[in-house]
């Protein structure tokens, strides 16, 4: 390729920076690329096949926004910086982690993202679950406990527990470290991927896990309630309680969801039941709610169908890889 044609080609691309929970990468996109082209390239770089859980997020006017995969990147309201910045994050959560996450990379990215949500208190977690989760996170990072290596203080620089938990007890940092280390020592023999899976199995039972909350109301000008969308369905909460829903509708209970401007409408399958109407703050919020409902519902249906050939291959490869690792782990 001549320098001239190379230069010409270079002008037809733009730079993007992708930040995942673990790493960063810089990629070049062609000017007419759609979201999907970039998303596929990122997944390829990460060697990630369970792509359906993830999305690319950017910040638009202070609001976290998901990149639309079927539209051109440069036609979306992505801040025009050089490079354009995106975060590669889990957008949808499995109903059951041990039955739906197969690749180590998928599981690892979920583990890192959920751990951050718990430590940042986006997911509220009891003190006892926080300690047990911390002990599995330590096992995943440090491997088997060895008192000669893991001496008191080895966790002093680690962020182990949510601040809310620390404030509930009169315990020094050393006392917390000691408690977590005692439980960490119990996990001897558990490999990194197993420790991360144990972490996720506990986390998925926390009430706020995988929930997307939106302020809604029953009248036009209030926002006294919350609507939660997750892998199982939609949930209605009072504004000050994100834990226990006032009412839940599983995907199987809902016939249709639609919106008109700020009004959002759920039609139940039960023809005798009344249509449920809510108002949200903006039409854009309704658009996002509808999008999350459709995608979560699609995943819900896909999981209940016979596996595609691609899915069968992913499961087979993951099984072989796990068996190989287990053998290696036992040999060591």
């Amino acid at each position: 390729m001549s320098i001239r044609s190379l230069k010409k080609k270079q002008q037809k691309t733009f730079k993007v920076k992708i930040v995942t929970m673990e790493t960063e990468m810089e990629l070049h996109c062609e000017m007419d690329w759609k979201g999907n082209d970039l998303f596929d390239l990122v997944c390829k770089h990460l060697v990630l096949k369970e792509t359906w859980f993830f999305g690319l997020q950017y910040m638009a006017s202070g609001v976290d926004t998901w990149l639309k995969l079927d539209k051109k990147i440069l036609q979306q309201d992505v801040p025009k910086e050089d490079p354009l910045k995106f975060r590669f994050l889990a957008k949808f959560y499995p109903e059951n982690v041990s039955e739906e996450l197969f690749q180590d990379i998928t599981q690892h990215l979920f583990f890192l993202q959920v751990k951050k949500q718990i430590l940042d208190e986006e997911i509220i977690c009891s003190p006892e679950a926080s300690v047990l989760l911390a002990s599995y996170a330590v096992q995943a990072k440090y491997g088997n406990y060895n008192p000669n290596i893991h001496q008191p203080g080895f966790l002093s620089q680690e962020e182990l527990l949510p601040k809310r938990v620390l404030q509930q007890y009169q315990m020094t940092s050393e006392m917390w470290q000691e408690k977590i280390t005692a439980w960490y020592a119990e996990h001897r023999g558990i490999a990194r991927d197993e420790a991360e899976m144990n972490y996720l199995k506990i986390a998925q039972d926390l009430d706020m896990y995988g929930m997307n909350y939106f302020p809604i109301s029953q009248t036009k000008n209030d926002s006294d309630m919350l609507l939660g969308v997750d892998a199982k369905g939609i949930h209605i909460y009072s504004r000050n309680n994100k834990i226990s829903p006032l009412k839940s509708f599983k995907w199987g209970d809902i016939r249709n969801i639609s919106y008109n401007s700020k009004k959002l409408k759920f039609t139940p399958v039960d023809k005798k039941a009344e249509t449920i109407k809510f108002y949200s703050k903006e039409q854009n919020v309704n658009k996002l709610i509808l999008h999350l409902c459709i995608e979560n519902h699609n995943l819900f249906l896909t999981k209940r169908k016979v596996d595609s050939i691609e899915m069968q291959q992913i499961k087979m490869q993951a099984k072989e890889e796990r068996a190989r690792k287990k053998n290696e782990h036992q040999r060591l």
């Binding site: 009891s126 006892e128 679950a129 047990l132 404030q167 509930q168 007890y169 009169q170 506990i202």
Partner: peptide, 27 residues
């Protein structure tokens, strides 16, 4: 539907009891 935290309930209970003596009164 299995109970929440099913295989971990014993560990969670043990941790909860071990933390009790250190709980702040307000907590």
């Amino acid at each position: 539907q299995p109970a929440k935290f099913a295989p971990y309930q014993k560990a969670l209970r043990e941790i909860r009891y071990s933390l009790l003596p250190f709980a702040n009164e307000s907590g």
